[in-house]
Amino acid sequence: MHEIVLIRHGEAAKSPTDDDPGLTALGHKQAEQLAGHLNVLYPGGQGVRLMSSPKSRARQTAEPIASLWQKPLEQLNDVIEIPSPEGVSLAQRGDWIQAFLNSNWNDLTVAQHAWRNGIIRALKSIESRPTQTSGPVETTLVFCHFMVINAVIAEIRQDARIAQFRPDYTSQTRLSLDNDVLTIVELGLERHAPHRIQ
């Protein structure tokens, strides 16, 4: 059995013009606190692999623990945030996401279906992917996004609702991978105060 931990990025700077915003000052603080917490759970990073969405907010959330453990941060392109439908501008994306949360996974565009299927394939193939980490790997930490986490949970539950839960910044959702089967071990902490999804 392989443990996969989906970690949502820290608070990101919201922007109607920047398609790849980094973390806010609070987000950087959250990432530092996360690193301390992860080092307690996995002392020295023994047996742990680090992977991240290519987006700055995810990578910046992972960088403190990568630095602490002196481990490579491997890019996993498949866990990037959901693509907007054609015709939805960057300035309109926030409103589209908020409305989308109340819809259904069956309503995805062809590109979005490919995105979701790619996430699941990537997670199921983690054990067989070449790694830059030395020694055996028992746990993979995947730094990613709100919609990625919800897409995975919906797939495992076979539930068509978009919003399965509202993972807070730097929350950790734990899965197990055993013989190509993903299972939910524990959902991450939820954020109950409303906020715009980035």
Rank of each mutant, 00 (worst) to 15 (best):
A114E: 10
Q132H: 10
L101A: 12
F100V: 09
L141A: 00
Q112V: 02
G94D: 14
R116S: 09
S103E: 12
I120W: 02
T131S: 13
L90V: 09
T140D: 02
R116L: 06
I119Q: 03
A99D: 15
A151K: 05
Q98C: 14
Q98E: 15
H113F: 12
N102H: 13
S103T: 14
D107G: 11
V152I: 06
L90S: 01
S134L: 12
M147Y: 09
D95I: 01
H145I: 01
G94M: 10
T139D: 11
Q92Y: 14
Q98A: 15
L90R: 04
N106A: 08
Q112W: 00
P136I: 02
E138V: 11
I126F: 05
D95P: 08
A122V: 03
T139A: 07
G135T: 07
A111Y: 09
A111P: 02
R129A: 06
T109F: 04
N102M: 12
R129E: 06
L101P: 11
T109P: 01
I97S: 07
T140C: 01
N102S: 15
F143V: 09
D95W: 03
P136Y: 03
S125A: 14
R116N: 06
A91V: 01
F143A: 05
K124S: 02
S134V: 14
V148W: 01
N104P: 04
N117D: 14
Q98T: 15
S103G: 13
R116Q: 13
D107E: 13
A154Q: 06
R121D: 14
H145N: 12
W115K: 01
V110D: 15
Q132N: 10
S125Y: 10
M147C: 10
W115V: 01
E138W: 06
P130S: 08
R129H: 07
F146G: 11
I149V: 11
L123T: 02
G135E: 06
S128W: 12
N106D: 14
C144F: 02
L123C: 06
I153E: 04
E127R: 11
F143Y: 08
I126E: 04
A151L: 05
Q98K: 15
G118V: 00
P136S: 06
I126S: 08
L123E: 06
T133F: 14
V137I: 15
G135P: 11
V110G: 13
N117R: 12
T139P: 10
A154V: 05
L108A: 04
Q112Y: 03
R116V: 02
L123H: 04
A122T: 03
V110C: 12
T131Q: 11
F100I: 11
C144P: 10
K124Y: 04
A111G: 10
K124L: 03
D95N: 13
S134C: 10
V110E: 15
F146H: 11
A91F: 08
R121K: 15
A91C: 03
S125T: 14
N102R: 14
